[in-house]
Amino acid sequence: MRRLLMAVAFFAASAIALAFLALPLLALLTHRSPGTLVSELNNPVVGDALLVSLKTSVIAQALIVLFGTPTAYLLATRRFPGRTLAITLVELPIVLPPAVAGIGLIVAFGRLGLLGGVFSALGIDVSFDQAAVVLAVMFVAGPLYVRFAVAAFGAVDPELVMASRTLGAGPLRTFFRVVVPLAGGGLAAGAALALARGLGEFGATIMFAGSLQGVTQTLPLAIYAEFDNNLDVALSIAALFVIITGAILLSLKLTSVWHSSRSDSRYRAASFASS
C-alpha cells in the first residue's frame, strides 16, 4: 500500500511539474490561431528583428568559438597560478543578472566608460550600435561555451595526446586530429547552448545597445516593444522563439545520442557527464 502511495505521489508531482512548464509554452502557440501567428510574421518589425538577431548571433558566435576555444583548452590542460581565479572569471557572467552585465558594458566600453576615450579617439562608438549587441551577447553567452569547452577538453585522456605526440604529430596536428574530435560533443553542446542563450539575450542588450528597430532591436527586444503596441506580433515572435530554441535543444540531444552510439567513447561520454 505504501509503495503504491509513493508511486502515485511521485507520478502526480511529475505530472504537475511538467504541466506547469508546458502550459505557458502551449498557451503561446494557441492563444491566437496558427494562421494569425504566421501572418503576423510578415510584420516588418519581425523581419527586422530576425535579421538583427541572426546577424549579431552569427558574428558573436564566431568570435566566441574563435577566442573561447583556445582559452578553454589552456584552462583545461595547464596548471598555473591564478587558474581558479580565471575559471571563476569565466563563470561569473553566467550567474550575474544581465542588468549588471549591461551596466558593466556601458562603463567599460560606452562613450564615457573606461575604454570610451580610446574608442572615440579611434572614431569608434560602440554603444547603441550593432557592435554593442554583439558585445552584449558575447559577454553573456560566451562564458557558457567556455565552461562547457573546459569540461570537454578536460575529459580528453592526456595519454591519447601523448600517444599522438610520440607518433610524430606536432601540437597543432594533435589538437585538430585528436583533441577537438574527442571533445567535439562537449564543444557542440556548449556552442548550441551559447547560441540559444545569445538569441534570448535581453537585459544587457537593452541597456547597452538600446532597442532601435532594424539596428539593435533583436527578437526578444521586439517582443518587449510590441507587447504594448501589438500583442499579436509579440505572440508571433514568442512562438517563433519556442520553436527555434526547442529545435536547437532537441538537435543537441539527438546528436549526442548519435555520438554515443557511434563509438564506445568513454571520453566523449565523460565530456557530458563532467560538465
Binding site: L160, A163, T166
Partner: peptide, 27 residues
C-alpha cells in the same frame, strides 16, 4: 616527443577511439 624517433606502446594501448584501425595505424 614528435621529433624523437620512438615507437611507444602504452600499457592501455592509447588507441584513438574516434578512428578506425586503419586510421589509427595511418596516424
Amino acid at each position: 616527443p614528435d621529433r624523437r624517433r620512438v615507437g611507444l606502446v602504452f600499457q592501455e594501448y592509447a588507441l584513438f577511439p574516434h578512428m578506425t584501425v586503419r586510421q589509427n595505424v595511418a596516424y
